[in-house]
Design a protein around this nucleic acid. Structure first.
Lengths: 215, 215, 215, 215
DNA sequence: TATGAATGAGGTTTCATTCAT
DNA sequence: CATGAATGAAACCTCATTCAT
């Protein structure tokens, strides 16, 4: 239960909440959050407007929910057969490609949810949504760290901590524009997506990490 | 004079327009465009609401203006002593660092304008604002191409066209998150900015371009 | 429920709608529809502006309502003791006088409603209001046809269909100026109204219908 | 010079006034007066908004001008070869047909001007426009009186004054709906116009006047 | 006198939120 | 708990009119 959300003790409440969440997910596939009215969410969910307000303090309290849906989806994907596993002696480049392809597929499939949280965190930074985000992204930093450790021998960067952070940042930001807003600049500058994009980015990261650094 | 804007023949009109533009610029430093009402802009500009509508067909017609201010600022910066000039035998790495540092400084200084156009192109993609954007970004693609040509000997990428496009895309997208939303994820993953960020990114690009590609 | 109106399921909604309709009716007694703001209607009805918009899509959606009030009023009048009944052997002249007097009394009593629809159909002919009007006026054409049939022997017009249409047109148009705008030209040309007007017009129609036509 | 209009001493002023009047005439062919903005009139006239206000106190002061154009047009038509002349021994019916046809042709040709004054006198009865109207319509009453006098022998009405007034009222009102709003109810009830309408109405008047009155 | 930029009251409409049922 | 009607602040926009140039 995230901030601004009200406790749901009864079973009925939980079912109602679920209906609202599904309605929100659907609506976000069609338009940005701020163009979705509470009335529309209620209608899609088949409940009354007041019911939404019984579960959520106000419209903004739905933002964390979006994030929550996203998290669940990603976890489901990673837990399933799509989990990434590296062979003991797999090359850095190969692992990077795997990870990037996976990242892209998640990003593309749940673009509407990412878009909503991404935009909203920027429109109303004062909301706590960002916090959740940050925690979650720490995880991605860690997984990058793990990859780097796993292939320690192939990594030539001197300032390892900074390189890890930078790689994590790049990993997260590079897919945002392409995945969330494929038809806007700057995404249109690179006329490929999917695996081509993922591989190209993997190659860049690979070069960055394994190229002997100059003074 | 961009779309939706009305012609200003008299001097007085131009001064009024200037006041409105300045007011808009100021307001955008504080909040996103959609949270700035026309009434507020008018008040900041010290003119009446109707006066804004005499110069601009509707509120959306102000969007291209934001972009225009940005362009002017950038051009002013590049025309000044900050122009980038590459020595004939300057190394790729060195040029990249110069360009990245310059790009960062522009991005950071006019973040509020970029933020406005960036967000609005995402909230209302149907508006033509994005078109201007794209044209403008073509320029950045070209300048990347020029750098690559200038140092053709040092570039090892096979698929040169794709590499150029990818570099241009990265150049544009990597600074967006850090420059426009420095306090949000994913920017917070990389705890440096300014020259450190620029140099790190230059290094990445350098590695990507000059690392002997594997099959 | 007419075009642009939203369904009212609850009793409370219907009561609110009634309040709005009454307020509109009242306001129209004082000024033309386009000089009545939605805010004024809401205030007179003792509801909030938004409430009006919950029942009606926009201001124009109130136009059909005016017509609806009018229809109800007329039906109420005709259903009451004021119903027109012709004796089997009543003379054409006598029937015409009865009908004209009745028509006048309706027209005069609900002048403000007729005025509103009449004016609006002329100011904004693109609105569908006129359609309702036409349907309704077909009825008056039929009733004229019935009278003529009833007194077939006394009617001397050769082109019977055209005469019926003309009589219906006259019946409808002659009362408009006198009834809706009694203080404007051309109404002021004839310094009588009420039964005197009705009788005079009945006489004219009678003469028109029963006078042996010349080639 | 009508009410609300300002004196034009200079030649230039008169030319300006003329341009405004022509512009107004043109605009009214396209839409009702209240949908024509002062700015549009000024633009069509090729003058500045302020110039219109230099000649006319306010927008409403243009109403009398419309009437004035109309009067001039009618007078021009009547003075030209279209003047109505009755033979000494011409029948009442024949004269009536001539007059009605003429009336219809005027009404139809200058419908846009009549429509404007007609509507506006009804939307803002407090304006003095109506006064001018009334004076002008007295003339039409007089011409009806003249016809009746000319054919005194054929007129059987007892209450001659009332009959004259009624005929004048009918003459004026019957053409209004058909001529000004041919596509709205009640005009649509009678599917003819032009000479057919004029003749039918002439016949009705003829019957009314010459039919031996019953007690 | 002519210009047209500037004014600002006032109109329509939206929608997050409240609250009586 | 659920409902959905009601609320009303606030946004956008228009246009008759004024007034500095």
């Amino acid at each position: 239960m995230s901030q601004g959300e009200k406790p749901a003790y009864q079973d009925r409440s939980r079912r109602t909440r679920e209906k609202i969440v599904i309605a929100l997910d659907e609506a976000l596939r069609e338009k940005p959050f701020d163009q979705v009215s509470v009335a529309e969410i209620a209608q899609r969910a088949g409940v009354a407007v007041g019911t939404v307000y019984r579960r959520f303090e106000n419209k903004d309290a739905l933002i964390p929910v979006i994030f929550e849906i996203y998290k669940k989806r990603v976890e489901a994907m990673l837990d399933g057969d799509g989990a990434i596993e590296a062979e003991p002696d797999e090359s850095l480049r190969s692992i990077l490609r795997k990870v990037m392809r996976k990242t892209w597929s998640i990003c593309a499939r749940e673009a509407h949810l990412l878009r909503a949280t991404h935009l909203y965190a920027r429109l109303k930074p004062e909301l706590a949504a960002g916090e959740e985000w940050k925690k979650y992204e720490q995880a991605s930093a860690q997984s990058v760290a793990m990859i780097i450790n796993h292939c320690a021998g192939q990594v030539k960067r001197k300032h390892l901590k900074r390189a890890t952070a930078f790689a994590a940042y790049m990993l997260n930001s590079v897919f945002i524009e392409k995945g969330l807003y494929p038809n806007e600049a700057p995404a249109t500058l690179f006329p490929y997506s999917g695996n081509t994009l993922a591989d190209e980015f993997a190659d860049m990261l690979y070069a960055y990490l394994s190229f002997p650094e100059q003074k």
